[in-house]
């Protein structure tokens, strides 16, 4: 003859409500762990920035443009979630922040410019004052770095390149 379900459950519950042994040193381990400084959270922004640059390159595929093309369209992307304004400045727009303002979506700033074949130095002007090189492009080596501020370089291939 089997026990009724309710009786079985009561016996099981009675068993499971008994105290279980916990390592007495656990409290000390917890207190030791919380006394240590919290490890810094790994930021996803550098990875996101790299991914954005990669995506923009894949979309525009500057390397596959026809050699006959005199100019190509490039999208410049910067991840700057804290920024209130970003402009693209460079040799192609006389370093004028008004000519290539960037638009943002969720902290990802982007703008598109037409570039004829050649080598261009450029940078991002954040909040109208902070000069930033493109983290996804080569930086301009001295002595080309004439402004004494970080800037990047992009080379657009043309005929024969």
């Amino acid at each position: 003859m089997f026990e009724h379900e309710e009786d079985v459950v009561q016996r099981v519950v009675q068993q499971l409500r008994r105290p279980v042994a916990i390592d007495p040193a656990l409290d000390a381990r917890v207190m030791q762990a919380i006394a240590k400084p919290e490890p810094p959270a790994r930021s996803i922004w550098p990875w996101l920035a790299a991914a954005a640059v990669l995506v923009s390159l894949i979309i525009w595929r500057p390397w596959s443009r026809s050699a006959e093309a005199e100019s190509a369209t490039f999208q410049f992307v910067l991840v700057a979630p804290q920024a209130t304004s970003v402009s693209l400045v460079g040799d192609f727009n006389d370093w004028d922040p008004k000519r290539s303002p960037m638009r943002t979506a969720n902290g990802i700033w982007a703008t598109v410019v037409q570039l004829a074949p050649g080598r261009y130095r450029y940078a991002y002007l954040v909040n109208g004052a902070e000069w930033r090189a493109d983290p996804g492009a080569p930086t301009v080596p001295p002595p080309d770095d004439e402004f004494g501020k970080p800037s990047s370089v992009v080379t657009v291939g043309g005929k024969g390149s």
């Binding site: 499971l16 409500r17 105290p19 279980v20 916990i22 656990l26 409290d27 917890v30 207190m31 919380i34």
Partner: peptide, 14 residues
Amino acid sequence: YGALVSRYRDRLGR
């Protein structure tokens, strides 16, 4: 926090 750990350790541990 030690008091909170001590208060909840047995029940949560079970």
